[in-house]
Design a protein around this nucleic acid. Structure first.
Lengths: 343, 343
DNA sequence: AAAAATAACACAACCGATTGTATAAAGAAA
DNA sequence: TTTCTTTATACAATCGGTTGTGTTATTTTT
């Protein structure tokens, strides 16, 4: 079989009797190179099957046009949509995306951050591992002026870009929606420890909405999940339905959990939304397929990915050394479907 | 703010009054370097915050320990699980994963293949874009001895590694299962053109199973989908349920389609599985959440990803120039749940 | 027509790790 | 003590683009 070695600009230079610098510049339409030469070089490059070596360029220029993405997993709909958004925006500007999964382990996150640094990524987008408390492994990026954007699950005290939704307001909206539907005994499933401010914020929105509408905050209606899985949701839902009286509304901070609540209710002969109205979070694909359709809070995953990537790309272009790292809030909406429509 | 520049082996060398070659070797526990020096170098490297520059190493050694993944999208459960498997296996061997989405466009696939080549990936894993007919853009890999593995959606006539399931046999098994449940008028939803042998194979399994059990192959029971979406599934299902008599079994080559069939049936007052038994394909998360639970064919996505990555890593280790590119068949199983359990 | 400006290209250093080869020092063998 | 090994480290080329600075032609200006 024919073994093509990689074609380099040296090969082109030799063939055309030009200097490599001329080849390099011609391929980039540099103004000091004549039209004629540019045309000739490009044609020859094409013919010889030249493909530039990104490594060489990156090494020399100390920029790789690569965005590192560090997330818990790629299999959650929210996160795969996030990636999709990142990838699309990156692609558009000629950036390449490197993906690593922390599997919600801090230790892996630390290693992978190092690996991204080692790969000299131009920017980093991260959604923190559930476990992560200490975020000092991200200092290597911010200290070296490598744009760093946290998305969705963000640290509290790290001065860098963030792309998030307003979880407090989303939690408030979800709860208010249930109140508007006439619910007065609204349960809330929550998750995460005191560190994961994401679920805490939603919970805060929930309690505030109750207070604002003169409803009591009943601790027995707030169930803390060990993990955000279907099974954990079933367990928690059963706990709620064992109460007497049962809650007449449930706000779950994720669609999988909400679905588990809906199905647990159905199994126990409890009608949704008549006996208990349910609202989820994320607008996962399953929410509009399940029966009854699940009301939910939209979580603009792809938009968030796009926004995060664009922040990085913009930052790399301007190369200004500003200290102000803005927080981008994306909008969420209450999506009313069957599972909560009582009126 | 303190601006740490990247620390290089030169910096370490200078600090310790040693040659860079010594540093490089010490960091790799080379046997010609004394224990004492190795310890000293490693300690200093740690202190100075040295992180090796992957680009430099890659450029020099002409190997990047990077696996390029080129797939239609990351948001399909099957594909995100595939990635997950790839990433886990890659991580274990110190490989990095670059991901690109073709969005089922051939044109993008061509560009991205070039981009992967430009990034000098060590190996490539690809699931073809729906649109792709011509696969010559993958020759740059095989011609340069860069391991190339096609997964799931593979080309017919390209001599390289493949990781697939036996779609024919899976289609046969699914259909036979319905026959075993007593179905005699089994419909099949299919997709893809004559080029996408994946769906064709499943269809072939379907027709063969019918023939083997002396059931007629009725063309009006075979509906070709324009796209593999929920909406297209609803449309096709309605077409089937407009028939008189309606089919008593449906084999859908994907869970989303199967779910659409189940729900369309329910909406029309047709009972699943009593009036019509339904079996899907893939074992997507939704299949065990939907009511009734969906019978399906398991599609070992993560295993396939793992297998594909391992083939590449193994190939890179042996570096043998073998011409035999094996096909890896992974096992599928009929997963009987409620939607087809009539007995 | 001489001076100045510009165009077109060549030269060579550079990015940072790797690695074959050379050298110096220390110890062993003769 | 001299020669031969062995040990430990240094030297320098290399990977392939990029880019600042020279060096010729060629054209324009005065």
């Amino acid at each position: 079989m024919e073994e093509n070695k990689y074609v380099t600009i040296y090969d082109i230079a030799e063939r055309l009797n030009l200097a490599t610098s001329t080849i390099s510049r011609a391929l980039k339409d540099h103004h000091t190179i004549s039209e004629k030469t540019i045309k000739k070089v490009k044609k020859t490059a094409e013919e010889m099957g030249f493909v530039p070596n990104t490594l060489a360029a990156g090494l020399r220029g100390n920029k790789t046009k690569t965005i590192g993405v560090l997330i818990p997993t790629v299999t959650q709909p929210f996160l795969s949509s996030l990636i999709s958004g990142i990838e699309i925006a990156a692609q558009k500007s000629g950036y390449t995306v490197i993906i690593m999964q922390s599997h919600d382990s801090s230790e892996e996150e630390v290693n992978m951050a190092k690996s991204l640094y080692s790969n000299r990524v131009s920017g980093v987008i991260c959604s923190l591992a559930m476990e992560t408390r200490d975020t000092s492994h991200f200092l290597q990026f911010s200290n070296n002026n490598i744009p760093l954007v946290f998305v969705d699950r963000v640290p509290k005290d790290f001065n860098t870009f963030r792309v998030v939704i307003d979880n407090y307001s989303a939690g408030y909206k979800a709860t208010k929606h249930l109140i508007d539907q006439g619910c007065t005994r609204i349960a809330h499933l929550t998750a995460g420890s005191e560190f994961g401010n994401l679920y805490n914020e939603r919970k805060r929105g929930y309690t505030e909405a109750l207070r604002d509408h003169n409803l009591p905050v009943d601790e027995e209606l707030i169930v803390n999940l060990k993990s955000v899985t279907y099974e954990a949701g079933v367990k928690a839902s059963n706990k709620l339905f064992d109460l007497n009286p049962i809650p007449d509304g449930i706000f779950a901070p994720g669609d999988i959990i909400a679905v588990s609540a809906v199905q647990t209710a159905k199994k126990r002969g409890i009608k949704v939304p008549e006996d208990v109205a349910v609202i989820g979070f994320n607008n996962d694909p399953i929410s509009e397929i399940i029966d009854p359709n699940l009301s939910t809070i939209t979580h603009p995953a792809e938009k968030m990915g796009k926004a995060a990537a664009e922040i990085i790309i913009k930052k790399l272009k301007s190369a200004k050394h500003d200290e102000v790292k803005e927080i981008t809030f994306l909008n969420t909406e209450v999506l009313v479907r069957e599972s909560s429509a009582r009126k």
